[in-house]
């Protein structure tokens, strides 16, 4: 069999087809005037809590829907639906540690985003893989929580490079951890000079208004 084989040069990034799918989805959403927010973080940083607080502050002004991505279970989707009342769907990645543009497109279809101003994709809890795959989102935001430590932008550089904003959650427990807010800013700006940083506490609401104001501005800009 081998003697018939010929060499074909491909010279293509593995991510090229996903990047193309993602761009197509982004343009589709732009046309439908729906802002897609890709929310990423490590497990346990408070993605769902931040999301509940964010939706509560914005749902009277803009129409919001949520896609929850998990390897399994629908715990987060039920929490969001019960606590906020907005339309929520669950995406199962079937063991995969991230979402790609094709999976996101299927979620967008199921969520019927056409009527929404803001669709939030809560990505799988992971600081590595989701950063590699463009989902087609209008913007990427990551959450880093105080107990995780301020060195994370150094350890997971790609995540902090691809994000437009970083939320530092759980600032209510700053006194109990050796977490240096100045250092985390310095490390994040080193990776990404344009990144917006929002220290918040989803528990007591501190900083949430500032973050929500910024997000609403981005949604309005995208949809105008």
């Amino acid at each position: 069999m081998t003697d018939k084989m010929k060499i074909i040069e491909v010279k293509q990034s593995v991510f090229a087809d996903n990047d193309a799918d993602a761009e197509k989805l982004r343009q589709q959403l732009k046309g439908e005037k729906t802002f897609l927010l890709n929310l990423m973080s490590a497990p346990g940083s408070g993605k769902t809590s931040v999301l509940v607080q964010t939706i509560d502050r914005l749902k009277d002004d803009i129409k919001i829907g949520v896609m929850e991505a998990d390897l399994d279970s629908d715990v987060d989707a039920r929490t969001i639906a019960e606590r906020t009342g907005v339309k929520t769907i669950q995406l199962h990645t079937g063991g995969m540690c991230h979402l790609d543009a094709d999976m996101t497109r299927q979620g967008v279809k199921e969520l019927e985003t056409g009527e929404l101003d803001l669709a939030v994709l809560e990505n799988v809890g992971n600081l590595v893989c989701p950063a590699e795959f463009d989902t087609g989102a209008s913007m990427n935001v990551c959450i880093l929580s105080v107990p995780e430590g301020h060195d994370k932008p150094l350890k997971y550089p790609l995540m902090f490079t691809v994000c437009d904003a970083m939320i530092i959650n759980k600032i209510d427990v700053l006194d109990y951890f050796d977490f240096d807010l100045d250092k985390v800013r310095e490390y994040a700006y080193k990776r990404n000079p344009d990144i917006k940083i929002f220290p918040v506490s989803a528990k007591n609401g501190e900083g949430m208004d500032e973050w929500c104001k910024w997000l609403k501005e981005q949604v309005c800009k995208w949809n105008s």
């Binding site: 069999m1 081998t2 018939k4 084989m5 010929k6 060499i7 074909i8 040069e9 491909v10 010279k11 293509q12 990034s13 593995v14």
Partner: peptide, 8 residues
């Protein structure tokens, strides 16, 4: 990247 393939 995918550099090349051998195929028939």
């Amino acid at each position: 990247n995918i550099k090349e393939i051998e195929a028939c």
